[in-house]
Amino acid sequence: MTYRRALGGLGLALMALGGVLLLGQPEPWRIALWLAGAVVLHDGLIAPLVLAVAALTAAAGLRPTGAPRAALIVAGSLTAIALPPLLRPGAPANPTVLPLDYARNWLLAMAAIALVTGAYLGIRALLRRRA
């Protein structure tokens, strides 16, 4: 119980620090709007998509555990990070800001995640058959 209170107090102190730092910014409403957008994005899009994938896999009789679940978490996190450049294609005002082909690189990262996960599952199945 003491740890819980200590962690709760630490959390409240960090929230207060965040509020003070937020109010010290030149335009705090922009940051607050961005944070509100993140909550809306999570609760309105990401969480329903995760629940839909879980429902579809359960309906198909699949239960992703271990490596498949980790791959889905990594792919989802990487997609969330890559969304701003993916949703705003085109040449930016400053050409040094986003000089890479984000759509291609995102697809390559998704393919790498799928290949590594598939290889891991294949090797694990092979080792189980031998044992």
Rank of each mutant, 00 (worst) to 15 (best):
A60S: 14
A70S: 11
L22T: 02
Y102G: 02
T57D: 13
L56Q: 14
L22C: 01
A111L: 13
G76V: 00
Y120L: 14
A80W: 00
P92D: 09
L14G: 01
A13T: 12
I73P: 00
R30A: 00
A52S: 10
L35R: 14
L51C: 06
A125C: 06
Y120S: 11
A112S: 12
R124D: 14
Q25I: 00
L22A: 12
L51K: 04
L33I: 00
L12D: 07
A125Q: 09
R69G: 06
R129C: 05
W34K: 08
A36M: 11
L14I: 10
L86R: 03
I81M: 09
A80S: 13
R30E: 00
P85H: 09
W29T: 04
P99K: 11
P95Q: 09
I123A: 15
G122T: 08
G19W: 04
A80V: 04
T65W: 10
A52G: 03
P84A: 10
L35E: 02
L35G: 01
G61C: 15
L23Y: 08
P89C: 07
L72Y: 01
N105D: 10
L17H: 09
A109H: 01
I113D: 00
A75L: 12
T65K: 11
G44E: 13
L41R: 15
V40I: 15
A60P: 15
A52H: 07
A91Y: 02
N94S: 11
R124W: 12
T117K: 00
L10F: 06
L51S: 13
A60H: 14
R129F: 04
L127H: 07
Y120V: 13
L10D: 03
P28F: 01
I46M: 06
G18T: 08
T117Q: 00
L23C: 08
I81E: 04
G76N: 01
G44P: 10
G11W: 02
V39Q: 07
S77R: 07
L107F: 12
V39H: 02
P85W: 03
A91I: 04
L33H: 01
L33E: 04
V116W: 02
L98V: 04
P89L: 05
P64K: 05
P84M: 10
L115S: 08
